[in-house]
Design a protein around this nucleic acid. Sequence first.
DNA 1: ACGGACGTTGCAAGCATTGCAACGATCCAG
DNA 2: CTGGATCGTTGCAATGCTTGCAACGTCCGT
Lengths: 258, 258
Amino acid sequence: MSQTVDRALSILPLLAEGPADLGQVADRLGVHKSTALRLLRTLHEHGMVYRQSDQRYRLGARLIALAQEAMENLDIREIAHPHLVRLNEQCGHTVHLAVYEESEVLYIDKVESRYPVRMYSRIGKPVAITVAAVAKLLLADLPEAERRALAEKLDYPAYTARSTPNAPAFLRELEKVREQGWATDLGGHEESINCVAAPVRGADGRVVAAMSVSAPNVVVTADELLTLLPLVRRTADAISGEYSGRTPVKDSEAKDPV
Amino acid sequence: MSQTVDRALSILPLLAEGPADLGQVADRLGVHKSTALRLLRTLHEHGMVYRQSDQRYRLGARLIALAQEAMENLDIREIAHPHLVRLNEQCGHTVHLAVYEESEVLYIDKVESRYPVRMYSRIGKPVAITVAAVAKLLLADLPEAERRALAEKLDYPAYTARSTPNAPAFLRELEKVREQGWATDLGGHEESINCVAAPVRGADGRVVAAMSVSAPNVVVTADELLTLLPLVRRTADAISGEYSGRTPVKDSEAKDPV
DNA sequence: ACGGACGTTGCAAGCATTGCAACGATCCAG
DNA sequence: CTGGATCGTTGCAATGCTTGCAACGTCCGT
């Protein structure tokens, strides 16, 4: 809608791939170097990009700090956190919380496994949307049309032999997940890692987040992990209850005056 | 430098404080609602802001994902990580890695304590710059003038009785840190938490990052924590060595699958 | 010393951006 | 149910911001 802003913002994902110098940025934007320079300068003033010692640009610290604040302001996360910790204390495994937003699913909280073997994941990282148990729950709740459109649009990387292969299979899986109200990922992302997940619902019944327990084969088998399902669902329901109980408005105080 | 982009970017920190509707954004930007609307739309198209069900705007998922990529591309982090993990295995405490960038110090990696009592911190969060041991190391290495200017500009919140009280005291502390080549924070941020930190240096000797080990009093006393200093320094030196040894170029491939 | 590559700056022309005003929708009070 | 207020949205014309150009400075390698 705004050409200038549009161009400026297009620089960010470009720099996310790695540092770039002025010429490279200008080329990839398709604008004159002087234009790119001025955009980069503006981004720099706001701390969104940083100019390293070799004069090349990369993403800046303010961007990271902003993202941090963005996550801390998600009230779901705040409400859910203590529950996640408690669940971790009970079962010892890695616990994740994720949300869906405009075609992406992101982890917004995580409590690390208490076992020595840990899985790799990171808060803020987009999840493997076609296989992750939390992603299935979140997508399964989308309106029919949107779900179908999204499924068509996605790539289906074959992480393992058990990864979801294509859109029809994915849609079938989502249907199943939607009916049973929980989801699993049995080695669909990493051969030796299994997850069980349950949805967190708002007052209107819509799925607002999803949580999962993940553990590698070497610690517990898939069957053993499945025995945790009731516990996971109870935890998710507890979060749902607390979240729904809240007054949906929270204008006046909330944060602070300003 | 570019008015439009400047305005658009100013919206982000504003939304970081909490969700806001169109009118609020327009007011705080000092522009007409229609203008604010178009800026927000552009931000929306790039996923930087998200429009929640009540039509208010908040920061979006893409922002978080970008920040994530930004951190993953820091080669220091990549090199340091295994060392941090090893250190954690040896001492069991929380290990942090931090960098300085334009007046901010941020944690860019963390390995959680293996003790049940954990300290609160989060990757990407700006650190308490006037007291944190890692911050002292990073600032101590700045050029005289910049260091002095920064020290004057900072606030000195009295987190505890042992927090750095003001600029002169801070500068003296930095001087000391610079000479001894390591730093501590003994209850300066949280009464019961102590840290020991050591610098990671690039090939030219400049401090490029700092790492620390933190533990609450209830687990180990400050004196006991100090006995870990040699280990921490050895680890930091190992990272420095590996970092300096590297070819500074790393263009062509760099990224990949995950 | 010279040529090339790169970042940077002043300037004029053109177009994108802006504020306005009017419209539609939603919500609440009477 | 209806009037009024509030909020988000859109077309339009004016102007002021943005753009590309060309020239300059600097740093490098030849």
